[in-house]
Every structure is written in C-alpha cells, then in structure tokens.
Design a protein around this nucleic acid. Structure first.
Length: 588
RNA sequence: GGCGCGGUAGCUCAAUUGGUUAGAGCCCCGGACUGUCGAUCCGGAGGUUGCGGGUUCGAGACCCGUCCGCGUCGCCA
C-alpha cells in the first residue's frame, strides 16, 4: 500500500504519528509562506500543511503549484490544529498533516469541471466526464446506497434459502412485450439472439427443475423510449418461489421492505403493507401506481352530472363516460385564472382531455366559476357536498371517458401534490396493488394483449371467464408501489399446459407459434411443474426512491441519455465492414 | 413519432423592443501574502453565441432546417 491511512481516518488521537496519505487535490490555498492542500479520497478530506519548519522552500513552492484534481502522495506528522482553527465541517477537522515529503503521482490539467464546484455542470458534461462526476460526494453516496441496498437484498434472500442462479444474457426473442435488443449470430446467418427483457422464462424453468427458491440480481434490456425513471438497461432483483400463492410472495417482499427501511432509514415499518385492488386504485387515484404520501383522492360525481343542464357534464355521462374530480383543499387563493389555464392546457395536451371544469368554494360555501350559471343552486350544493367542499377549496373536474379521467386526474394529482408540497420531502409510502386485469384490448391491432405477460395465472374464480369475458378476467398479479412509482411487479404463473394453451389462444398465439417460441416452456410445464410465482424489483428505482432522488441516472454509474447513447464511450458506435460481413449484415 | 424547455468564455449564468466593442462570478495564467479552509489583494488571458441557411441597414435574440441534452405523451408483456 502506498498509503498508511485514508483521508477520512485521522483524528486527534493520531497526533504525533507519521503517516502517508494519497488522494486528489481538492483545493490548494497558497499563502506564500505556507500552502494548505485539501486532500480528498473516497473516505474524506484531510488538510495538508506545507510550511516551515518541516518543509523546505522548494517543497513549499512545488506544493503551491500543484493543480486541482492532481493525484499526490504526502508524508508527514499528524499535528493538532492551532487554537481556534478547528474546522467543524470536517471529520478530520481537529488535525492536519504537516508535510515533510510530497510526490505528484499524476498531475491533472484543468478539468472541464471540478467535483467541488458550487454549480452542478450540465448533465451532458457530467455524463461525458463521468469519472469526474462520480468523484462528487452526492454520486458516491448514491452508489454506496445502491451497494448497501443490493447487499441487504442478497443477505435477506440468502437467509431465506434462496439460490442465486445466473441466467443467460443471450437468449431468444419472444413475441409480446417490449422491443428487444438483438444480437446477430455469426454462426447462424440471419438469426439473432435477444437480450433478456427479464429472466422470466428461465426462472420458471428453474422452478420446474425443483430449485424451489431462486434469486438473481439481473440485468434487463428493453429497447423503448426513456424517461426520468427508465433506462434501456436496468437491474432487477428477480426472484421466484415454488408451492406459494400471492400472499406468500407479497409477505416475503413485505419483510424485505421492512428490513430495508430499517437499515436505510433507521425506521420501524409496520407490516403488512397496505394493499388495494387495481380497480380501487383506478377509482381513487386514477393510476395503478398511486402515491399515498398525500390524500386528494378522486371523487366520482357522474350520478349528479347526469342530471344537470351543463352539456359538458351531461353529454359525457350520456356517452358512457364519467365526471370525476379532485378537491384541492384550501388552495383556491393560490390559483389565478392563468394558473388554472396552465392546468387546463396540461390535461389537454398530455391526456387528450377536452377541458378542465373548476369551481372556487366561496366564503358562504357556494361553488363559483365562469360556468356555474349552467347549474342550479341545488346541483352546485350536491356537487359541493360530494366533494366535501369547504370555503377556500378549489374543485376541478374532467368529464370524459374512464381512461381519460383516470389519466388526466392522476396527472393533475401528481403534479399538484409536488407543486403544492402536499407531502414532506422525506415521506415514503409503500403499498401493493393487486388483481390486475389479465388482458387489455388493443384497439389498433384489434386483439387482446397480456397486461403483464402471457404466463400470468388468472384468479381461480375468474378462470371460467377466460373465454367468455376476457376483459373482466383478473390476474394473480401484484405490483409494489413506492411513492407513486412501480417499484416491483410479479405474478403467480400458470403451471399447467392446458391453461397456458388457452391464454396463448386468446392472445392470438397459435399452436405453431407457441411451440416455436415457447416449446421448451410448454414441455417443462408438462414434465412436473410445481405451482410457482415470484416478483422482480426495480433495483435502480429502489435506490432512487430511498435516496430521495427524482432521476434514475443519478443512481447508475454509467447511464445512457434519452436517445440511449453513452456520452463517455460514445456507444453505440460504428463497426468495421468486416464485422458486419461476418454477421451477415449490411448497414443502410 | 408528437408536444414543451434548453444550447452564449473551461464551468454556471446575464445580455432591455432586433442596435455601440457580447458581460459577470467561478476556473485558469502572472504577481503579492506566515494560518487558510468558498482564503484575500493586484493584474491578465479567455467567445465560430451548437451547426447550416434565411429575413434585415443591423441577428445571441426573429424565421426555416438540422444536431445534441432534458421533461413529457405515445411506447415500456
């Protein structure tokens, strides 16, 4: 080891010791007679003093010229700081190292930015020079938290007898689901591997193999457009269990959430975590991932709306739609017409809503808005009552299809929750959403598609509806929701070939295609498949949420941009014509 | 693919209604200084305003196109 201690290690009890430290020059304060260098490494910051009597003037000169972010080695004695010169901000602030010898291990030219500069550089620069960005304490802390959370997960599952099994990265493309990243085969001209969207099929096979409890920290790949909380390449904690039902899997994860909250936040989380059905989540919050850090639930006033003269409301209900709204408690005075217009544009542009109806609740409790003349006093009173409106409230409504009211109100609720600070910054909420629909109807393709994946088992009581009424068939599927984010999702799987065949049929996957693509799974299900189910947790999102961050790139060492490129390595890049030829490919 | 925001010195930002030589702080360079810790003081350097075209007497600003970054909708079993 070049060093005897780290830069975060020395304390007053070390005074008098001869030490050798290595690190990066964070700052260099040259006073002519003596020089102060803040030496930084992963563990902290130690002040080095280069001055008489230990240091000769040539050393002092040299120290004054060392540039920021150079890597240096210093030898010297630990000394107490002068009276009144203790730096309370540093853990090593009671001491300093009086330098007797210094070596510049690697000088650094002026970097595009320094880790300690007060203004955060633009994200493109941070990504291009990620090695500088990762020196920032905030990035280091995020990566340390990530490491800690993964360790908690591994320990937890190891403790519960799970076997960690690695599954292939080069697999085969499956129909349905996200767009695959493809890898051309050199040996098999014109054929392709696909990178896994998840290890779904392999883990089911492991259950058939009798492994009983499987776990893996698995890299997954989906070639879809990015978001603040979505990367094309991400990491799941993937697990699967045999001879279990939904409650067993949820219970296992409940325990993990509790343990993580305890170790990361130091808080006791009471179990079980709250659960609600998909239907309930959509009614109350308009989304399958409700943020429970604040209330402001959706209220359905369709029954009242059906009777009013106001055509916007009545027509919506007549056409089979809904009138649903939110009560923004006590915030009417915060909302100018201009700000309400902004919200109106927001729901129109993003969720195809036709408009936003709103009322202020006056001091006498009456509802007022430019459109209130279209309502009778009785109707307004009924609406106010339904919304539990009190003076000072602002109530707003969407009159539209179920889907539009859900999406629009969920969007409004999310936006207003953040803008109005309806929850404290460190608040966390954890809950389960269960009983997702098995299928969604894809109007464009005019067919049913699996809401989760085609191996999801229906609720036992809905089994008979598979054929008769697929739209109302519910799945044994469950999502873990943290702060309004999907933090994990799983299902109990189909474990008999016959049901699997039925589901494939409904999805328009004919026997030939099913054999072709999933033959191995159908075989496996035939040769003694135990009932099984599991879940996958989004590790990146867990870390993001537990760190209180709003961007997934902040918890990934080398993330990709919105266009899925890596600004540091400049991937994706071009390849030689020879490589293409070997792969039987031509670039357009 | 749609909508929106942004791109000006190495970095973070400013630049009035389209109007003089595009400014500031930090960084950097030179000098001074025996205790700083966002050191201080003096002096200095530093610009293809992302790129291409257009409008105009005149464009950092306006128009068209394009590239890049971010947010969001679609998409994400």
């Amino acid at each position: 080891m070049l060093r005897s201690h780290t830069c975060g290690q020395l304390r007053s009890q070390d005074i008098g010791k001869s030490v050798t430290l290595c690190g990066w020059v964070e700052n260099n304060r040259d006073h002519g007679g003596s020089v102060f260098i803040d030496l930084r490494d992963r563990y902290g910051l130690t002040q080095i003093v280069i001055g008489p009597p230990e240091a000769e003037s040539s050393l002092i000169d040299a120290a004054g010229r060392v540039s920021s972010e150079s890597v240096i080695l210093v030898r010297g004695k630990v000394a107490p700081r002068l009276v009144g010169k203790v730096n309370e901000k540093l853990q090593t602030g009671e001491i300093e190292v009086r330098c007797e010898h210094m070596e510049v291990l690697n000088p650094c030219p002026t970097p595009p930015f320094t880790p300690s500069q007060p203004e955060l550089p633009g994200e493109d620069l941070r990504l291009k020079y990620r090695f500088l960005d990762l020196r920032r304490p905030a990035m280091l802390q995020a990566m340390e938290l990530r490491s800690k959370i993964i360790k908690i997960m591994r320990d937890y599952f190891a403790h519960h007898d799970f076997i960690d099994v690695e599954t292939p990265i080069l697999g085969r493309s499956t129909p349905e689901g996200a767009r695959d990243y493809l890898v051309p085969s050199r040996v098999h001209g014109g054929k392709f591997y696909a990178l896994p969207q998840s290890p779904q099929l392999y883990k089911q096979i492991l259950m058939v193999a009798g492994f009983d409890r499987y776990v893996q920290v698995a890299k997954c790949f989906r070639d879809e457009d990015l978001r603040a909380d979505r990367q094309p390449e991400f990491t799941q904690l993937d697990m699967e269990m045999s001879f279990v039902d939904q409650d067993d899997v949820i219970g296992m994860i409940d325990g993990l959430v509790q343990r993580t909250v305890k170790e990361v936040k130091g808080m006791e989380l009471p179990l079980p975590l709250p659960r609600m059905t998909y239907q309930e989540a959509m009614s109350r919050f308009g989304t399958d991932a409700p943020d429970l850090r604040f209330a402001m639930e959706i209220v359905d006033i369709s029954q009242i709306a059906a009777e009013v003269d106001f055509r916007v409301f009545r027509d919506a209900v007549d056409k089979g739609g809904f009138v649903r709204g939110l009560n923004v408690k006590g915030k009417a005075s915060d909302f100018s017409r201009r700000r309400i217009d902004e919200l109106t544009d927001y729901v129109k542009q993003n969720f195809a809503a036709k408009g936003l109806a709103w009322f202020r609740v006056e001091q006498d409790g009456a509802l007022w808005s430019p459109t209130s003349k279209n309502f009778t006093d009785v109707e307004l009173r009924e609406i106010g009552q339904a919304m539990q409106a009190e003076p000072g409230d602002l109530v707003m409504f969407l009159a539209d299809s179920w889907e539009v009211t859900c999406k629009g109100l969920a969007g409004l609720r999310k936006r207003l929750g953040a803008e109005l600070n309806l929850y404290s910054e460190d608040a966390m909420s954890y809950s389960w959403v269960t009983q997702f629909p098995m299928f969604e109807f894809d109007a464009e393709e005019n067919r049913w598609i699996a809401m989760h994946h085609p191996f999801t088992a229906p609720l036992a009581e809905d089994l008979e509806k598979l054929k008769s009424d697929p739209g109302s068939c519910r799945a044994q599927a469950y999502d873990l929701v943290i702060n309004g984010s999907e933090a994990g999702g799983g299902t109990i799987r189909i474990h008999d070939g016959q049901t699997q065949q039925q589901v494939f049929e409904l999805l328009g996957i004919d026997q030939q295609t099913a054999r072709d693509r999933f033959g191995f799974l159908l075989d496996a299900l035939k040769y003694g498949a135990p009932p099984h189910g599991g879940i996958a947790l989004g590790i990146d999102r867990w870390v993001m949420l537990f760190a209180g961050l709003e961007n997934i790139r902040e918890v990934i060492a080398f993330p990709k941009t919105q266009k899925a490129s890596d600004l540091m390595t400049e991937a994706p890049g071009e390849v030689d014509a020879k490589q293409l030829r070997e792969l039987h490919l031509r670039a357009f």
